[in-house]
Design a protein around this nucleic acid. Structure first.
Length: 421
RNA sequence: GUGGGCGUAGCUCAGUUGGCUAGAGCACCAGAUUGUGGCUCUGGGGGCCGUGGGUUCGAGUCCCAUCGCCCACCCCA
């Protein structure tokens, strides 16, 4: 075998799928508890949407997108995140003309071309929630509360919520001046990336991970100190709402989102011990995004949770999986003549809503019993020559090993009775 | 894009200073008085030892390349 799945992808086989069902179920239930409704958008969009909606100075757009041309020559991109597609759908269907706010959630695969490592894949899954249409700080708090609620309901215990505010365009203008003043004499000491960022996107320098940069940057002015009165008030209100619910968080000066349409609140959910990629979730307010995508001036805020990372973090706290609906009855038979009858009985049981299977491997009766045992069925219907001759079926209880003859016409009724159906 | 580790049966792994038909456990299949499961016993199938070159009388074992996986940098979920 030399064909394998593409790099950075993986298969979720049946033995693991129960954990995913559980994740998805809790996420949906919790979001709906908060009044969010599911939205499903395409897995690919016009490349332009992400260039504008994510920002073309970001790593995502610059080097991580799966972009291709379709046969009509359009440039399309597999979605690297879920917010821009939501904004697009919000605008395209003029949802803003409905009563606001609009509260949506989504769940599904995202695609980024990046070197895989622990907790990082090229196709990965996100749960996300977005609220459009309200500037209220109570909404910021709600969205953070929802994120925390989901992970705690799933059993996550050791996590940290990081919180910051990046203000609005006006505050940042002021801050950028201060930042430029501060960086001016230090430029030569910054890393190559940061030297480029000085002009393109100076805010990104703040959270540069290069040790040298971090040393150079001690004493860097803190963005939060330059918030305008309105933004400072908004942030204070968000914090009050979080405190009211006793949602713990740590203020993080280095938590930044660099693009112009990201405003005010920014937050991330971190978990230690799942590898270098400790961010399990993150989000923030993006009051300029809808307008940037060609819509009206409608504010928004949202977050996304990386499901693979959450699963990693949950592994130790053992998530109980949703168990699949196992089989209830196995129809065993001997010989060709009985096979035809067994096939008919199989049909009748299934039509009666009883989860039933039979042998397709030409197994001996002994092997069929073994298979029935492996499948963990409660009952086996045995159809052999003797049963045929005397027109009955043998019904065996696999737990008690009790076995008795039953009139053929009574089989379905009897099985239903035993199974309590 | 950069660096490190690893690649032997379906799975988890052994495989001595390179030496005869490459092993174990689990799984799978078949038997153990011919119509019956879970335990036990016996037997069996299954491996281009990631791939391609090279060194050698001889390579799973050494060298080179390549691919893949894992981890880390960068970045993010």
């Amino acid at each position: 075998m030399d064909i394998t799945g593409p790099r950075g992808t993986y298969d979720i086989l049946p033995d693991k799928v129960g954990k995913w069902h559980r994740l998805e179920r809790v996420m949906r239930q919790t979001a709906e508890l908060y009044g969010y409704q599911e939205v499903r958008t395409p897995l690919f969009e016009h490349t332009e949407l992400f260039a504008r909606g994510v920002g073309d100075t970001t790593d995502i757009v610059q080097k991580e997108m799966y972009t291709f041309q379709d046969k009509g020559g359009r440039s399309l991109t597999l979605r690297p995140e879920g917010t821009a597609p939501c904004a697009r759908a919000f605008i395209q269907h003029r949802v803003y003309s409905q009563p606001q706010p609009t509260k949506w959630y989504y769940i599904g695969p995202m695609f980024r071309y990046d070197r895989p490592q622990a907790g990082r894949y090229r196709q990965f899954h996100q749960f996300g929630a977005e609220t459009f249409g309200s500037r209220s700080p109570a909404v910021d708090a709600e969205i953070i509360t929802l994120m925390v609620d989901i992970v705690t309901r799933l059993g996550l215990r050791d996590y940290e919520v990081h919180l910051n505010s990046v203000g609005c365009g006006r505050c940042r203008l002021e801050y950028r001046r201060k930042l430029a003043e501060f960086l001016q004499p230090l430029q030569a000491e910054l890393c190559d990336d940061c030297r480029k960022r000085v002009d393109i996107n100076p805010l990104r320098i703040i959270d540069c991970k290069e040790r040298r940069c971090q040393e150079v940057l001690t004493g860097l002015p803190v963005l939060r100190d330059y918030l305008c009165a309105e933004c400072a008030g908004h942030f204070a209100a968000v914090r009050r709402y979080l405190d009211q619910y006793a949602i713990a968080y740590v203020l993080d000066d280095r938590l930044v989102r660099g693009l112009d349409y990201y405003t005010n609140t920014a937050f991330e959910l971190h978990v230690a011990g799942i590898g270098a990629q400790s961010a399990v979730g993150g989000g923030g307010r993006y009051d300029g995004l809808v307008a940037a995508c060609g819509g009206p001036d409608v504010p928004g805020i949202g977050f996304a949770i990386g499901m693979e990372r959450l699963l990693l973090a949950l592994e130790e706290n053992l998530v109980e999986a949703v168990l699949p609906e196992g089989l209830e009855v196995f129809v065993a038979y001997t010989g060709e003549e009985c096979e035809v009858v067994a096939h008919q009985v199989l049909r009748e049981l299934r039509q009666a809503g009883i989860r039933t299977d039979r042998d397709y491997m030409g197994r001996s009766l002994k092997a069929q019993m073994k298979q029935a045992d492996r499948l963990q069925v409660a009952l086996v219907v045995l159809i052999g020559e003797e049963e045929m001759k005397k027109s009955f079926y043998t019904l065996r209880d696999m737990d008690t090993k009790a076995q008795y003859q039953i009139e053929q016409a009574m089989l379905v009724t009897e099985i239903k009775r035993i199974l309590g159906k």
